[in-house]
Amino acid sequence: MLKTGTARHKAPAPRQFARAGVLAAAVGAALGSAVPAAAAAEPGGAGKTGGEIAAGALAKGLVTPARGTVRGTGIALGSALKSVNDLQLDPLANTGTDPLDNSVGTQIADFRPLSTAAVTGPLARGASLGDLPLVGPLTTRATDALRR
Score class of each variant (00 low, 15 high):
L132D: 05
L114D: 01
D90N: 15
I75K: 15
P99E: 09
A80Q: 14
K60V: 12
K60E: 15
L81P: 06
S103V: 01
R112A: 14
T116K: 09
G78M: 08
I75V: 15
S115F: 05
K60G: 15
R67V: 12
G96E: 06
A55M: 01
G126D: 07
D98M: 03
D98Y: 03
R71V: 04
V84Y: 11
T106C: 12
A109N: 07
R67H: 09
A66L: 11
A117I: 14
G61C: 02
A54I: 12
A54K: 09
L132Q: 03
L123H: 06
S83K: 15
A76F: 04
L92D: 14
L87M: 12
G126Y: 05
V119S: 05
G56A: 15
Q88K: 14
R112K: 14
A66S: 11
S83Y: 11
A57D: 00
P91H: 07
T73K: 13
A127R: 03
T69Y: 04
T120Q: 06
L77T: 13
N85Q: 13
L89E: 06
G105D: 01
A109E: 04
G121Q: 12
V70Q: 12
G130W: 06
A57H: 00
V70N: 06
T64G: 11
R125G: 04
G74T: 02
L132I: 03
L62G: 02
A55R: 11
A59P: 12
A124R: 08
T69I: 03
V63D: 08
L114R: 03
S83T: 15
N102P: 05
S83P: 04
V70L: 14
T95H: 06
A66V: 05
I53L: 14
L129K: 09
A59Q: 14
L62T: 11
L132A: 02
P113A: 13
N94F: 03
S115I: 11
F111P: 00
V84W: 08
A118G: 13
L89W: 06
G74R: 11
D110H: 10
A127W: 08
G61P: 00
Q107D: 02
P122D: 08
R71S: 11
P99N: 09
G56V: 05
I75R: 15
T64N: 08
N85C: 08
D98I: 06
R112F: 07
L129V: 11
L58D: 01
G105L: 05
L100K: 02
G96K: 10
L62E: 11
A54R: 12
T97E: 10
Q107H: 02
L58Q: 00
P99L: 10
R67I: 10
R125C: 02
Q88D: 04
A59G: 13
P113Y: 03
G78Q: 10
A76K: 14
T64M: 04
V70W: 09
N85W: 01
A59I: 12
G74P: 01
G126L: 05
G126K: 02
T64E: 14
A55V: 06
A118P: 00
L123G: 01
T64R: 13
F111Q: 07
A80C: 09
G130I: 08
A109V: 02
T106W: 14
A109G: 13
D86S: 15
L77A: 13
V104E: 10
